[in-house]
Design a protein around this nucleic acid. Structure first.
Lengths: 187, 187
DNA sequence: AATCCAGTGTGACCTACCTCACACTAAGCG
DNA sequence: CGCTTAGTGTGAGGTAGGTCACACTGGATT
């Protein structure tokens, strides 16, 4: 379990055994079943999560009860309601399991400690955050410039495999189109 | 000029005079006139920019020649085509002046040096990047859930003042609606 | 076997927004 | 001063995509 995390971190910064031993004390492991929630709207957000296995969705439910998927999180991804996490305010989104999942949990205090005590880890998180930011900007561009069909094709390219694992209803909620429209695109 | 940068950084991390002296050696100043470009599509992106004064737009031009505004950058904002900057590849977007602007330029090498030599600055950039990521996610949510009119009102709230400084045509390109539709929303 | 329900397809109609076209104003410039 | 150009408003008609309704399949539950 933890070795997956180490492998993931070492893609960015090398760590000695001692360093990783220190790192690992900051995390805890947890398992969730399909349909369980890691975060529910209104919760105080305790953790950022690293996904070891399984598949999550980060969801915002609007006033009319419709679900919108901000992000999927699969193996090797970090996810949380980061806005609520960093400011320790209540979640506006929920984080749910689409498949059974194993995750590694990082409380905010531990995150700060880790960054302070091991500059390498600050650098690691900076890299991850930067890439996340760039990815989010590409998604914005996609929403601004592309039609539903084009966005669908972009997702096929960027996340091959995801489409197989996710019901089309959820994919539609990620693309920002109705289930019915997505169903008609394949043509 | 540079004192604006110092003030900005010290909102996140305090610096001694010596530390700021070191920091400041990593940056250069530059001025641009309205309609000039800091980055053009196809350029190798040399700098990330801190906006001291003025107003910029980060623009993607699609195949049909239509402009889409990924982001505005006003006083105290950092901007660049970050994707191209971090990977030192060619820009897919351009960064243009809407008003005369003074900016502070940070080459990628200096950025890395600065983070390595002064952990405080790594922490500063991590904070900025995180907040940028959160902001981008909110924009995604806005595009997924809200109508053109709602998005317009959200921008009014989040960036009061911006609407006065920016022609409606550009605001429309930011909101993802046509100029004409935006014009009809005021009702 | 009978039932339930998640997931999906599809037809019919509706609407938010786009595009095209034209008009008007205010500002910069020879 | 007249001319151009940027910025904006507004009408008319088109379309991508939404909503509602119903049907079908396959896996899970009893």
């Amino acid at each position: 379990m933890l070795d997956k995390l180490r492998e993931h971190i070492e893609k960015v910064v090398p760590l000695t055994d001692d360093e990783f031993a220190l790192v690992s004390t900051h995390f805890t492991l947890r398992r969730y079943k399909k349909h369980q929630s890691l975060i529910q709207e209104g919760d105080v957000v305790q953790y950022a999560y690293f996904v070891v296995s399984g598949l999550l969705k980060l969801v915002y439910t609007d006033a009319s009860g419709k679900e919108h998927i901000v992000s999927f999180a699969m193996e090797d991804w970090w996810e949380s309601d980061f806005g609520a996490y960093y400011t320790q305010t209540r979640a506006t989104m929920s984080l749910d399991c689409i498949e059974d999942a194993s995750v590694i949990c990082l409380p905010l205090d531990n995150y700060h400690q880790l960054c302070a005590s091991l500059p390498k880890m600050a650098h690691f998180f900076l890299t991850k955050s930067t890439l996340g930011h760039i990815g989010a900007q590409q998604r914005i561009l996609s929403l601004l410039t592309a039609t539903a069909k084009e966005r669908y094709e972009q997702v096929l390219q960027r996340f091959p495999g995801l489409v197989q694992r996710v019901p089309k209803t959820l994919l539609a909620a990620y693309l920002g189109v109705s289930r019915e429209t997505l169903s008609r695109l394949s043509a």
